[in-house]
Design a protein around this nucleic acid. Structure first.
Length: 482
RNA sequence: CGGGGCGUGGCGCAGCCUGGUAGCGCACCUGCUUUGGGAGCAGGGGGUCCCGGGUUCAAAUCCCGGCGCCCCGACCA
């Protein structure tokens, strides 16, 4: 690895915290790889081979007839996801890359607040859930094993993590603690909907904090707010942190992260300096309905500010649980005076799939998806025009190899096919940079550049010159993107 | 869980009312031509018509019963 090449790696996602040597990105979809580790092949600097002629990206001109939500239609059309049943979805390679970008960002920021990643089972003994009084939740999948033992498929992991902490944490010296994992959740939803937005099975990052007292919980809660704010900001989404109902989790307080978009199932009430879940907002003493009451939709004021109400997707939520789970599961510790005390807990969730869907919703245009660069499946969508063995194709092959060797994540459309088809597919998939090499490029000496957001033509890049210059130019372009 | 709709090749649809053994567009395969915004010609492959039962000489089509999927609402740790 040369110094020059390693410089080029900075084209990857940049975190706000540059002090850590983290370069996590979807370049490494390997689950569980430490965020701080090297994410490239140990022997080389190149991105994986991603030639469209040999990549499973089943794009469709027409959306499934029953799709309504923008993200549902586009994610299917762009070849990111495919359905298996109601609320059951497969992530295809390009889609999974996007999902794993979100995962990588979350992992970095949680590691950054000292959280420790682990993994707990989905299949669990029903007894745990009986103890916390949640066994009768309708959404909880219940089953029996071959011996007739009662089992559940976990819809969240408070029971599991508290069970382990109860076993292993003995002393105030073991606290505080933040544990997390990325794990599949199973929920028997009454109505799955809108593609990946509401499913019966989905990956969630859930973290849990454990403290000696309420003050400790408040601290860990604040740490999570910081991490979540950074995570959401880094995804490139428009989002709000809002006060929320405590809901069925019970507890001492909760906030939600909401991404406004048309397909949202929730509503956020917004005024300058104010954002809240609508249910919470309507209980606010200073919020009043204005007009004759028959207006549709109703209008509200907060003081002298108009309150706007927007549909939004809940992309994350955080709860102060208190001792709701530690008490029934016996998660106690001995304090300095030797007294047994219940552990104070917090619970913090993010659904990567919803972040992906929200990004599609927020930035799509009539041509397709337009990823924020932090989430794009590839940095560059390179289009070769002209048949194999033509000079323009060879020139494009060269560009591909240069980018790949330089660590740029590039999807290379080397298929036989019409230009229009290739352009349309590129805009559907929505990678931030589209580079095109064709006969015109040979004449002009330039690689054509389109910025996906806004479909703007940018200044061409020199074709066939110094590879390092090309990599630097791409890097510079990349940094200028939203 | 209430209301509505839909199940025919990978996707989008027609055929069903009036029963006769399945068709169109896209996609896919082969060949030739074409190549800067979803090409043309020719040839070709692929369907338990959601499932089960019934009626009938004959069922995608009619009848009965299931199942699945989508949308609206309720619900949503």
């Amino acid at each position: 690895m040369t110094a020059v090449l390693s410089k080029q790696r900075s084209i990857e996602i940049e975190g706000p915290d540059r002090s850590r040597e983290t370069r996590a990105s979807g370049a490494s979809p390997r689950f569980g790889q430490p965020a701080s580790g090297r994410l490239r092949h140990p022997l080389g600097s190149a991105s994986p081979m991603t030639r469209l002629s040999n990549y499973l990206l089943p794009t469709e001109k027409q959306a499934p007839a029953d799709a309504e939500a923008i993200s549902h239609k586009l994610m299917v059309r762009a070849g990111l996801i495919r359905q298996m049943g109601a609320g059951m979805w497969t992530w295809l390679p390009a889609g999974w890359r996007v999902h794993q970008r979100v995962v990588a960002i979350i992992r970095q920021e949680l590691d950054g607040i000292g959280a420790q990643e682990m993994l707990m089972p989905v299949l669990q003994p029903a007894e745990l859930w009986r103890k916390t009084g949640r066994l009768d939740i309708d959404e909880l999948f219940k089953l029996q094993d071959r011996k007739g033992s009662e089992m559940v498929l976990a819809m969240t992991h408070e029971e599991a993590v508290t069970f382990h902490v109860a076993q292993t944490v003995r002393s105030y010296r073991d606290l505080p603690l933040i544990l997390y994992h990325f794990q599949v959740k199973e929920r028997d939803e009454p109505r799955p909907r809108a593609g990946v937005l509401r499913t019966r099975e989905f990956v969630m990052k859930d973290s849990y904090s454990f403290d000696r007292d309420r003050a400790g919980l408040e601290e860990n809660y604040a740490l999570h707010i910081g991490a979540y704010d950074r995570i959401m900001a880094r995804t490139g989404l428009r989002f709000y942190r809002v006060e929320s109902d405590v809901g069925m989790m019970g507890g001492l307080g909760a906030d939600e992260y909401m991404a406004p978009c048309p397909a949202g199932e929730d509503q956020v009430a917004l005024a300058p300096g104010y954002a809240a879940n609508v249910e919470v907002a309507l209980r606010h003493p200073d919020i009043r309905e204005v007009g004759d009451g028959d207006a549709h939709p109703p209008r509200y004021m907060l003081g002298d500010q108009v309150l706007t109400i927007e549909p939004a997707i809940e992309i994350g939520n955080i709860f102060k649980l208190g001792t709701r789970y530690s008490e029934p599961l016996g998660a106690n510790f001995l304090d300095e005076a030797g007294n047994e005390q219940p552990i104070w807990m917090g619970s913090y969730g993010i659904g990567p799939a919803r972040i992906v869907a929200a990004a599609v919703e927020q930035f799509a245009d009539e041509y397709g998806i337009s990823w924020p660069r932090a989430l794009a499946p590839f940095a560059v969508h390179l289009i070769a025009l002209g048949k194999p063995d033509t000079p323009e194709r060879e020139a494009c092959d060269g560009v591909y190899e240069t980018l790949r060797a330089g660590g740029v994540e590039v999807l290379y459309d080397d298929r036989e096919g019409q230009p229009g088809e290739k352009f349309a597919d590129a805009e559907l998939l929505g990678c931030p940079l589209r580079l095109t090499v064709g006969r015109k490029s040979l004449e002009s000496g330039e690689i054509e550049v389109q910025l996906r957001r806004g479909r703007q033509q940018a200044a061409g890049l020199a074709l066939g010159g110094d590879p390092e210059a090309l990599l630097r130019a791409v890097d510079e372009l990349w940094r200028s993107l939203p």
